[in-house]
């Protein structure tokens, strides 16, 4: 029995040594910490974007960890520090609690990149953050609405998970506009809850319709909830979209949602770009060549460029290029 164990251990050691030798070479070692791809179409596209970019052919030896909770993510980060990777990439489940691990990484000479989501810590603890500006997304959407030049803006507002960065960023420009401009009124405000539930959005819209509330704009903070509201409108025979009575607005730019724009059933979809991998790839290549990263703001951020799509101008090419 003992012999077997010894033999087994020896075998494991030999194998792991060969594995390390194989993995070595000129590849850049990267540890990538992300959230679960089943979370949403956004995350699925984000994970795919990273796995497609950080490949062996592209010069990387990348290890991927997808974990939905902060403790598992921190554990993965510690593992990467022990494994002495060159770079760590993080999309954090929670914005706080990272200081210690990031300091350890810095002490070990590992460079950290944040993508998609910010972490609340000293900006010196990470090299750069490639993130979305959620407030910018809200402002773009409200500016688009204003450009329509309607006589009255009567808004049915479906919020996302209350307190999340995406909800606050997308809600604030709208609520501020409604408070400031008397042509704009909030007919009803509801939330899809922690899971951004389309079915809850449908029930809220049903309640508004049953109460004979008069609204001409649906501002839903993601595509799924916009779809839930549309189901309620369809059931009540209220027309929507380009030639309809009610303007439908969503966020995230899922492929199926952009197709509804192209069909004229919806009016607007705001992009939340999951494509940060190329930017980070370029930055790492610059650093490896001995260069400096340029274009960072005071928080070491680079803000992803994000568009808003209008049903009247969207094309099939847009869907293929930006649809998640």
């Amino acid at each position: 029995m003992k012999k077997f164990v010894a033999l087994f251990l020896a075998l494991v050691m030999v194998l792991s040594c060969t594995a390390m030798a194989l993995a070595d070479g000129d590849l850049i070692k990267v540890g990538i910490i992300n959230l679960d791809p089943s979370e949403s179409g956004y995350r699925q596209a984000n994970v795919k974007n990273l796995t497609d970019t950080f490949t062996k052919e592209n010069g990387y030896d990348a290890t991927f960890v997808t974990a939905p909770t902060a403790d598992k993510q921190l554990e993965a980060a510690r593992g990467f520090i022990t494994a002495e990777v060159d770079y760590i990439l993080v999309s954090a489940a929670e914005t706080t609690g990272w200081d210690e691990v990031l300091q350890d990484a810095k002490d070990a000479g590992i460079k950290v990149f944040l993508f998609d989501r910010m972490i609340e810590c000293d900006p010196d603890l990470y090299t750069a953050a490639v993130v979305s500006d959620m407030r910018q997304e809200g402002e773009t959407a409200v500016a688009w609405l204003e450009s329509l030049g309607l006589d009255e803006y009567k808004v049915l507002h479906i919020q996302g998970q209350l307190g999340s960065a995406a909800q606050i960023g997308r809600s604030d420009p709208l609520t501020e506009k409604i408070a400031a401009d008397e042509k704009w009124t909030m007919v009803r405000e509801g939330t899809g809850g922690d899971s951004w539930d389309p079915n809850e959005a449908r029930k809220i819209a049903e309640a508004a319709i049953n109460a004979k509330e008069d609204f001409n704009i649906v501002y839903a903070e993601n595509d799924g909830m916009a779809d839930g509201v549309v189901a309620a409108l369809d059931a009540a025979g209220i027309t929507h979209g380009v030639d309809g009575d009610v303007i439908i607005m969503g966020f995230d730019c899922n492929k199926w949602a952009l197709e509804k724009l192209l069909a004229g059933e919806w009016n607007y979809d705001g992009q939340c770009s999951p494509f940060q991998a190329n930017v980070i790839d370029q930055m790492i290549k610059t650093l490896e060549a001995g260069g400096e990263i340029e274009g960072l703001n005071e928080l070491n951020q680079i803000i992803s460029e994000e568009k808003g799509f209008d049903a009247r101008t969207i094309t099939q090419e847009d869907i293929d290029a930006y649809g998640l």
């Binding site: 089943s38 949403s40 899971s195 389309p198 079915n199 449908r202 799924g224 779809d227 189901a231 199926w256």
Partner: peptide
Amino acid sequence: TGVCRLGQLNHKTLLAD
């Protein structure tokens, strides 16, 4: 029933809670 209501499946929100 839940899937057919919206004509789409969302693994996170179908019959959530």
